[in-house]
Design a protein around this nucleic acid. Sequence first.
DNA 1: AATACTGTTCGCGA
DNA 2: CTCGCGAACAGTAT
Length: 267
Amino acid sequence: MPELPEIETIKRYLEKEIIDQKIKNIEIFNKRSFKGNKKNIQGAKVIRLERKGKVLVFVLSNGYNLMFHLKMTGQILFFNFLKKLAIDKSTRVIFILDNSYLVFNDIRKFGWVKVVDDKNLREEIKRLGIDALNLTFDNLKRILNNTKRPIKLVLMDQAKIAGIGNIYANESLFLAKINPQTPANKISEEKIKELLKAIIKILKKAIKYGGTSFSLYLKPDESKGKYQEKFLVYKREDKKCWRCHKNIKRIILGGRSTFYCLNCQKL
DNA sequence: AATACTGTTCGCGA
DNA sequence: CTCGCGAACAGTAT
């Protein structure tokens, strides 16, 4: 469930392992999962990792970069040469580094890895809104005042705010006691403050728990995140609200399952 | 067996 | 601009 906290978890893990390693070779098992020319990065060294929203970037030593988007079912797994490499039918790309392998798995094949030069990277990154962890009251207010779309869709609009997907949009709105259908420009300054605090709190908590693994997401060492044990509303349809003990309701908003408490999150 | 649902995003037509 | 919908794809749950 690669949203911001999952990508951040992967980034922090890989930073400890692959900085300064050289990309010796790349094995591509599904052409559509790998975009660009692999020759451009063969032999290049990993200088540092960056993340914006749900996109992970390896900055390389030769002016090229590797971008990753995990979409729904992507995984990036790390194996050093002491640990047996695990490959299965979902394996799309393997990167062979100096002392390790990175395995890119993706059952549904929506995700991708892309080779881009620095200029290209800047253009791609520019299309994303501010990273959710960098949100401030002023820019959140500006974003919300600008539209009457339902608040949940705005939170999930990557061109406005990058990193929040379905799970953490539901969770943040519950914590801030805002109905997901509320027109964004109808939210008071007080509520915007609460929402900002809620977003940051939820994302940081999810990072602390290593992200959400209710399905396929794994950390690079193949262990699971634990935020699914902490869900406030997500996937809790017909269960009791933790706050008021009334029932949680599920609706579809923008085509996505949306969970909220009828009592705590009134329109 | 058939249908619904899933962490994402893009493109199309209204 | 906004919205809804289908598509990209594959698996699980009911």
